[in-house]
Design a protein around this nucleic acid. Sequence first.
DNA 1: GTGGACTGAAACGGAAGCGAAACAATTTGC
DNA 2: GCAAATTGTTTCGCTTCCGTTTCAGTCCAC
Lengths: 116, 116
Amino acid sequence: MSISMRPSQALRLWQQVLLSQVRDDAPDLTMRQTAILLTIYLDPPPHTVRGLAARLNVTKPVITRALDTMGALKLVSRHRDELDKRNVLIRRTVEGALFVERFGDGIVAKAHELPI
Amino acid sequence: MSISMRPSQALRLWQQVLLSQVRDDAPDLTMRQTAILLTIYLDPPPHTVRGLAARLNVTKPVITRALDTMGALKLVSRHRDELDKRNVLIRRTVEGALFVERFGDGIVAKAHELPI
DNA sequence: GTGGACTGAAACGGAAGCGAAACAATTTGC
DNA sequence: GCAAATTGTTTCGCTTCCGTTTCAGTCCAC
């Protein structure tokens, strides 16, 4: 069984979630940054700069910069791969997990409030 | 009857939609810009700069700049209010309606593909 | 009609994003 | 051992966004 919704409901859901994020002064992540963050937290590790760049079809500097920003927000952390020291492994953080969790709960709540 | 989903499904849905947007080089709107666009297309008109700023809890220049950007993308259009010439009325465009419609369809499609 | 209130836009300096290219550090292949 | 390939970062010039402040145009009360 899959999730079923009409386009008007989907758009309303998206709007409500975005509005709550904007209003609550949540970290103002770009679409790309959010996509990277969710990929790190939803897809199985390990995550590398190269892997994320390929997954999102963007250049590597885009990933590096996003990691700089989200690292400053403590949403993710970087660690050298000891087995292949060229690699950087991106790992989750407690703060990031909490943020993602709350974000997911927010979507569910807004979905539940949707008019028919 | 409301839309029911688990947080993990909600996050996966969000990720899939963002990934498709990023990968397809869709207009790279910020979270705020997207919130403004959806509000214009979902909430009943008329829409003014001041009204949108209040609805999103942001300053007026944020709205003005977002309208500049989205106007250049032809997603919205501006018109002086003839009854009160201080006001600017923001209106929908054919291109914008098409973009929003496709966006909604995309969400629905990703929701339908979600694993249980 | 004139002063004050209101609306949206513009100006300003600063922060952060972009793509492309160049860059060190490391591993691999021979 | 050493050139070639690979990885992530940095640099360059440019664009866009931010908040604050200032400005021009319009309306309204008196």
